[in-house]
Design a binder for these strands. Structure first.
Lengths: 184, 184
DNA sequence: CCGGATAACTTAACATGTTAAACAAATTTC
DNA sequence: GAAATTTGTTTAACATGTTAAGTTATCCGG
């Protein structure tokens, strides 16, 4: 498989464009607009940061999300699944799958809560703790390098703004919940 | 669920924690540290923003990434797959899958480049263009509302900082490429 | 008690992220 | 110029994001 493209004999699409047939790079007017949108800016910035951490985590057999979970667990004795989802910023289904995997690898332990059997209480195992301790130095070094390159002052300022952005949108109503958002 | 396990002694990393088994919310000391890391701040901020757009896109049968692709295509006549991956900030494999889907839905068209049969040239179809035009008003209204809530001035400042962060890390060597990152 | 509503997960299903490998066309080397 | 290498794209395989549905345990009104 993997053959060449389908090369069906279609021709010039979008009849609403009255350009010449200049190369795409020749006129990227509105493209810049798109590329500078807030979601794209945030995405690229985050990727630039995570790009630094992923190889190290990978060398220790951890994904970013698995690391987030273990990291969160080091800060508490035990924590309920829902709370863990909140602090590690993961959706329930993702967390459920990852916990299953981490438990199979003996990096975490969990039991049912005595008072409410629906709730699961999770904690890091000693093996998980050792893993964290093995990864932490590199992670902290990378974080320090990032701080140094960007500037500690500016980093704090950036994080303040990000927090403020979050708060600005926290109360914002989400549009288009029903069906069509124009009218219906 | 996981049966009862050994739960060895408290492993609180900062030794000064001698709580009973109070709820996790009761004492979130070091957790805040983790929660305030740069990657988490960026992730939460981006999620807060995208949360506003997703329902509207979903009502039009589009995911965020599909929207990014169509949006990028409206700015050009045709574009090569690699270039499209760059501007829409998607990895090749993701883009490949999504293009297959968008083509099947007749939202885009593609053909092989005359000069280099390896390259695929992609363009938006008139149907795709119509879809964009149907979604755009809502998206722009949401973006305007975000700008209003957060402040246009601050928004521009935030984006400047995000761009600067990107540039700061662009030249940073990625550690731990080989095997262990200590020495190799 | 009991049966319906609610809550806390978990599964399912589909789309994307991520890395490695496969493939075919183009380019370079010998 | 054919073999070896490189380049552009796709496939494969596994992990996560995202929404909906399923499960089991609690709660709650009668």
């Amino acid at each position: 498989m993997g053959g060449p493209l389908k090369m069906s004999g279609k021709k010039s699409p979008n009849g609403s464009r009255s350009d010449q047939e200049g190369t795409a790079e020749a006129r990227r007017g509105p493209m810049r607009e798109f590329s500078r949108s807030l979601p794209m800016s945030l995405l690229r910035a985050r990727e630039a940061v995570m790009r630094q951490f992923r190889p190290s985590l990978r060398n220790h057999g951890l994904t970013e999300q698995q690391w987030r979970i273990l990291r969160a667990l080091t800060a508490v004795d035990t924590i309920e699944v829902t709370e863990l989802a909140r602090v590690a910023f993961l959706l329930g289904p993702s967390l459920s799958r990852i916990l299953r995997d981490l438990e199979a690898r003996d990096l975490i332990e969990r039991r049912a809560a005595k008072a409410d059997l629906r709730r699961g209480e999770v904690s890091i195992s000693s093996k998980g703790l050792k893993l964290i301790e093995a990864v932490a130095p590199t992670s902290e070094a990378i974080y320090a390098e990032i701080t140094h390159r960007f500037g500690a002052r500016k980093l704090a300022e950036l994080q303040d703004m990000l927090g403020e952005l979050e708060r600005s949108l926290a109360a914002m109503e989400v549009a288009g919940e029903g069906e069509a958002e124009a009218d219906e």
